[in-house]
């Protein structure tokens, strides 16, 4: 038993090393004085300095955040609205909606990206940041539905009916009961959509206009001509940001759950 226990821990630790070694390598290299990928020549913050003064990187960073915010916002509104409407729909239509929802989710990004590009070209829409945002909304909506729908399902129809029964109009029932009840799902959906948008490369690659760069497309471009150490600094910043955001999200979630439990007798 004891021996097995040790083996288990070793296995899990090895996987953790596998998962984090590449990321930590980048982090270490970002503080390296020299340009080499393999040789440590001394500690320096110069790559961070040159990253922050690199207009291209800063612009790509701004674009990434802007695109992610807009598409997460729009997809959250659209996805939440349809989730609320779903339980009041006839079963056949609902099943059809959900099946359609799975298409962008399970389809390959390359097909999603290329087919959207074909559509933009066919309708004479010239590729720009706008087309990137429209495309991101398309693949973000399913993720919003994914996180909002379980909440709506869990709420059932009775919350809505109870509100009507107590004299609320359908509008009042929506804003006073349904939306507050499913808020955690909406928040999660928004975050999910935001992350998916930030993380996307393939769809952006095919639907962006000339000169429009996000972090992903910028890195892809650099990889072809040779990676500059500024990108290591960038990835360190990205990783640390992701870490902080996720830890905060978890802490807040935990706090909320504990606060609710605290009231328990």
């Amino acid at each position: 038993m004891k021996k097995h226990g040790a083996l288990r821990v070793i296995y899990l630790v090895l996987i953790i090393i596998f998962l984090y070694a590449p990321i930590f390598t980048l982090m270490v290299l970002s503080f390296n004085e020299g340009k080499s990928m393999g040789k440590w020549t001394g500690f320096s913050l110069r790559w961070y300095a040159s990253m922050f003064s690199d207009e291209e990187i800063m612009e790509a960073l701004g674009n990434t955040v802007f695109i992610a915010l807009v598409s997460a916002l729009v997809s959250t509104v659209i996805g939440t609205a349809v989730c609320i409407a779903l339980p009041r729909m006839n079963k056949k239509i609902r099943d059809a909606f959900l099946a359609l929802n799975n298409i962008p989710l399970l389809n390959a990004d390359i097909v999603t990206g290329l087919s959207l590009m074909l559509a933009f070209v066919a309708f004479g829409v010239s590729l720009s940041m706008g087309t990137v945002i429209l495309s991101h909304i398309t693949f973000c909506i399913p993720y919003v539905i994914l996180s909002v729908r379980p909440r709506v399902k869990q709420l059932g129809n009775t919350g809505y009916e109870a509100a009507l029964d107590l004299g609320a109009t359908p509008g009042q029932a929506l804003f006073k009961v349904i939306l507050p009840e499913i808020r955690p799902g909406i928040t999660a959906g928004f975050l999910m959509a935001f992350t998916m948008s930030v993380d996307d490369f393939i769809v952006t690659h095919f639907t962006r206009g000339a000169g429009v760069n996000t972090l992903s497309t910028l890195i892809y471009g650099q990889v072809r001509i040779g990676i500059r150490p500024t990108v290591y600094a960038l990835s360190t910043i990205v990783f640390v940001t992701v870490l902080i955001v996720l830890v905060l999200a978890n802490v807040f979630q935990g706090k909320g759950a504990r606060a609710r439990q605290g009231k328990r007798i």
Partner: peptide, 19 residues
């Protein structure tokens, strides 16, 4: 509609608003 009727319902699973 239900919100215009002078009657109220006690639902099977209470249907209290958890928030």
């Amino acid at each position: 509609p239900p919100n215009k009727r002078n009657l109220n319902t006690v639902f099977q699973k209470y249907a209290l608003f958890p928030h």
